[in-house]
Design a binder for these strands. Sequence first.
DNA 1: GTCTATAAATCGATAGAC
DNA 2: GTCTATCGATTTATAGAC
Lengths: 198, 198
Amino acid sequence: MTSGPAKRGRRPGAPDTRAAILDAARSLFATQGYSGTTIRAVAAAAGVDGALVHHYFGTKDDLFVAALDIPVDPRQILAPVVAGGADGAAERFLLAFLSVWDDPDVRPALLTVARTMMEPATQRVFADGFLPVVIGPLGVALDLDRPELRMPLVASQVVGLILLRYVLLVEPLASMPTEQVVATYAPTLQRYLTGPLP
Amino acid sequence: MTSGPAKRGRRPGAPDTRAAILDAARSLFATQGYSGTTIRAVAAAAGVDGALVHHYFGTKDDLFVAALDIPVDPRQILAPVVAGGADGAAERFLLAFLSVWDDPDVRPALLTVARTMMEPATQRVFADGFLPVVIGPLGVALDLDRPELRMPLVASQVVGLILLRYVLLVEPLASMPTEQVVATYAPTLQRYLTGPLP
DNA sequence: GTCTATAAATCGATAGAC
DNA sequence: GTCTATCGATTTATAGAC
């Protein structure tokens, strides 16, 4: 993020302290969660004064949303998954999902979101927000039977995988090649999507 | 917790404020996490003064470990799982696991642990502690092949299930009868334990 | 045993000098 | 643009009266 093409001539009076603050905030939010990162810690990590953080970004909430900057649209990622129909949807879903998480430009933002979803104060955002508005519609778009049952099953496996592989970095999941992850979890998800259920 | 059998006669001078504080702490730690619950909130919920909390339990950390008091020994719960061998271990494992979580006397303590595991400061306790010392040995006790690969797979599904069913209370998982949960997830876990893997 | 009062630290946020 | 200084609120924790 900090490394752009070097501009010609003298740099302006404000070097990149705004970007430095944003980078520090991204890193701290991703590792310490929202309530765990203080404005002062962000300022210290960026090597500037705490007041500058407010000067550039206003309140702490403003800094948080500025640091998020999710560079992906979930519906756009999920479009090819629904386009192929229910057959093989598990494999396409895993591929789409992992390709986003394995992108080093996107992962920090997703880690931030994941950590924040775990905090008690914001955890209903996942249960009442993300799940019904992005995962739920995927089930009806795939024309599953009982999607209101099957999609939470899918979510329960994907959330656990994300947590161990990307957040907690549990081996050997963390270092496993994408293709092996897909091949390992696709049968599970395909059964949840279209297989027989009690 | 608050409702025990009513004792005969006059209650002693110190009623049960210590137990009231402990109950309030348990409830708040379980719902708000460690950093999310304040001593003052515990005192208010117990209907006492904040200083009493310190008087009875010392520091906030002391109160936390006092509020934990996990009433189960994981190895004892898992004993019948390993005793039966690898065949049908998934079903026995799910039954043992869910019976603990569905026990209303135990769930608050487990919720507290789960919430605390998610906090950035203590999250390595799960990855470096719980997983290798209780889940890992289960794999070798069952004499699986490649247990260091298979047990994290099992953990990834169980963690996701616990998170959605008990922490986030996502429907219909939260209200699903135990037998249906077992029947739904047993095939997945059995494949992770003994089935073919890439 | 229970409470008031307060110390000591830390937080987010603001005002204003340079 | 950057910083010093500080306010006001909140937190844990302690000291001591009753």
